[in-house]
């Protein structure tokens, strides 16, 4: 890492009369969950290294309202969403990148109806464009080289928004063998966190959804499960732990894998 590592806020940028290229939307998990924080750090390191002028909202960011809306609580959703849109419009934000596909989906598809129109990218798409533009240089030899990877489609990047190939082509840049699970792409199985399930006990049943999905991932013989969502990250990590495989199988976000090659 050569350049100075900085994470400026929109307020600081505005004070310096600068407009960043892109706003990094961190999300609740990326801000508060200790595992997902590491993804936020990895992604901002990549942005620094690639020389991307970016900023975060910092204390001015709120939850996008996704779990409230999906649980059925439209009032709470509208309150935070409208507040976020006010903030974003105040800073005249054009372009947003999110490391959480739930935030990505809401910002991209649902804020326009409330008056928030932005170009929104998921960080895997952003990483792909940085690689394509040659702004990220991958070195030979990296921490994860040679390990077998399986990629877990998140529901909100995959089926919800039809993005299946971009994350896979990002992974193609690594020196790893990519193996598919039985249910992939449009048929990918949920990790069990979506629709506000993350915030409640499971309904009675025979099995946890993350166990079902983790078993499938382990069957591929992969040593790394690559994810693109902080909630999948939690769910799959829990699943691996429940199977007592945490010594041999790691769960990483795509950003962490790319950083390992920089």
């Amino acid at each position: 890492m050569s350049k100075e590592y900085k994470i400026p806020t929109m307020a600081e940028m505005a004070a310096a009369e600068k407009t960043p290229e892109v706003l990094f939307w961190v999300g609740c998990a990326g801000s508060f969950d200790s595992r997902a924080q590491k993804v936020s750090v990895a992604f901002t390191k990549i942005l620094n290294e690639a020389g991307v002028e970016f900023a975060i909202l910092g204390k001015e960011e709120s939850c996008t309202g996704d779990p409230a809306r999906r649980a059925g609580n439209e009032f709470v959703f509208q309150m935070v969403a409208l507040q976020n849109i006010e903030t974003l419009n105040l800073y005249k934000v054009n372009k947003i990148v999110a490391t959480c596909p739930h935030c990505f989906n809401v910002l991209k598809n649902e804020y326009p109806a409330l008056g928030g129109n932005y170009e929104v990218m998921h960080h895997t798409q952003f990483l792909q464009s940085l690689i394509n533009e040659g702004r990220i240089k991958l070195k030979d030899g990296g921490a994860f080289d040679g390990k077998k990877i399986t990629y877990h489609d998140s529901c909100y990047l995959g089926r919800a928004n039809g993005v299946y190939e971009v994350p896979r082509s990002v992974l193609q840049n690594l020196d790893n063998e990519l193996v598919e699970m039985q249910r992939t792409k449009t048929n990918g199985l949920c990790c069990g966190a979506g629709g506000a399930q993350m915030f409640k006990e499971n309904e009675p049943g025979k099995k946890r959804i993350n166990t079902e999905r983790t078993e499938e991932a382990l069957e591929t013989g992969a040593e790394i499960i690559a994810v693109n969502c902080p909630f999948c990250l939690t769910m799959m990590s829990d699943g691996v732990k429940a199977k007592e495989k945490q010594e041999s199988v790691m769960v990483y976000d795509l950003a962490e894998l790319i950083l390992g090659k920089m």
């Binding site: 990326g30 901002t44 910092g58």
Partner: peptide
């Protein structure tokens, strides 16, 4: 909310 960034 931005404590992670400050620490990092």
């Amino acid at each position: 909310r931005d404590k992670w960034a400050e620490e990092a």
